[in-house]
Simulated assay, not measured.
Amino acid sequence: MEKIRINRYISSSGFCSRREADRLIAAGQVTLNGQAAQLGDIVGSKDIVKVDGRRIKPLHDDRMVYLAFNKPIGITSTTDSRRKDNIIDYIGYPERVFPIGRLDRMSEGLILLTNDGSMVNPILRAEHKNEKEYEVKVNKKISDEELMILQNGIPVLGQITNFSKTKRRGEDEFNIILTQGLNRQIRRMCKYLGFEVVSLRRIRIMHINIGNLPVGTWRHLTKKEVEELHRLTGQQS
């Protein structure tokens, strides 16, 4: 095994993402060869890494898990077991997995889960411009001009949103494709124009579609979907 940074080592074990690994290291919950680990530590094959006293090791490729889940309204995209509505307990997958990004509690639709921590940042970072498509219904008729304003950019959380392609589905319904993931972005964009979101459903992440997957159920990504995911994110499978 090549020597790698400790946050990557932890994420490759399926324990959590690199960002969460950094948080655990900073909180003093990680040890390297019996000593408190530091951000940026380098780990080799003979080193012993523990999180909260539990030794972890990188997973082999054949143990990587990639799930597509059709999240119902009312389920929270968190691994925090203190939340009774957390996504992990709801799914009940037999191995440790975690969600890639979030879908707010009152929204439904596609969310990906994995034990491959190296995949999280390449999918989520805004600079990679990975598409996520949503079906939106608002509380009143929306004009073509208003859809164009949504498309070209709205002030949200101190910045102008990226170009977001829109397509009308009805007088108060439309699809929108985002390439960034600001907190409650679509709801905030609609609110800026005086609309309230009645329903919000994510139907696609990059090349992965929700298709006919029933609400509240999950499936494994196909081999072709996983290979394409690795290709698009520049990750080796």
Rank of each mutant, 00 (worst) to 15 (best):
Q29H: 14
Q29Y: 12
A27T: 08
L24R: 08
D41P: 10
L67R: 06
R102S: 06
D22Y: 02
D52K: 15
G92M: 07
P94C: 09
G53M: 04
P99D: 04
S81A: 14
R63P: 02
T76E: 09
G34Y: 03
R23I: 11
I48P: 11
P58W: 02
L39V: 11
I42A: 12
D85Y: 01
F69K: 08
I100C: 02
L32E: 07
A37G: 10
Q38E: 14
K57C: 10
D52M: 11
F98N: 00
D80C: 00
F69E: 02
E20G: 00
I48N: 15
G40R: 10
F69M: 04
I91E: 05
I25E: 11
D41L: 13
G44C: 05
H60V: 10
G53K: 01
G44Q: 03
G101M: 06
R96W: 02
K50L: 13
P94A: 11
R23D: 14
T79L: 02
Y66K: 08
N33T: 06
Q35C: 13
D80T: 06
V30H: 13
G53P: 09
D47Q: 13
I91A: 05
A27N: 14
I73K: 15
V43A: 08
G74L: 00
N70K: 06
G53D: 03
E20F: 07
D47C: 12
Y66A: 13
A37T: 05
T76N: 02
Q35K: 15
S45F: 04
G53E: 05
H60G: 14
Q38H: 14
S81Y: 08
F98L: 05
G53C: 07
V65M: 09
I87E: 02
Y66Q: 09
N86F: 00
R55K: 14
P72I: 02
K71A: 03
S81I: 10
R82H: 13
E95P: 07
A68T: 00
Y93P: 09
V65H: 07
K57I: 10
P99Y: 05
Y66N: 12
D47R: 11
K46A: 15
I42Q: 15
R102T: 10
A68V: 07
D52Q: 13
M64N: 12
T76D: 01
T76W: 05
L67G: 06
I100Q: 04
V51L: 15
I42L: 14
D62C: 12
A27S: 15
A21D: 07
N70F: 08
I73L: 10
A36H: 07
D85L: 03
Q35P: 06
L32W: 08
I100A: 01
S45V: 08
Y66L: 10
T76M: 05
I75P: 02
I73T: 10
R96K: 15
R96F: 03
K46N: 13
V49H: 09
Q29L: 14
I56S: 04
L67Q: 04
A26H: 07
T79Y: 00
R55F: 02
S77I: 00
S45D: 14
E20I: 08
T76S: 01
I88L: 06
G53V: 04
Y66D: 08
D47I: 07
L39T: 11
R83A: 01
V65N: 12
N70S: 09
R96C: 00
S45P: 05
R54W: 03
Y90Q: 03
V30D: 11
Y93S: 12
T78W: 00
P99H: 03
F69L: 04
N86R: 00
L32V: 12
K46M: 11
G92P: 06
I75A: 01
V65F: 10
R19A: 12
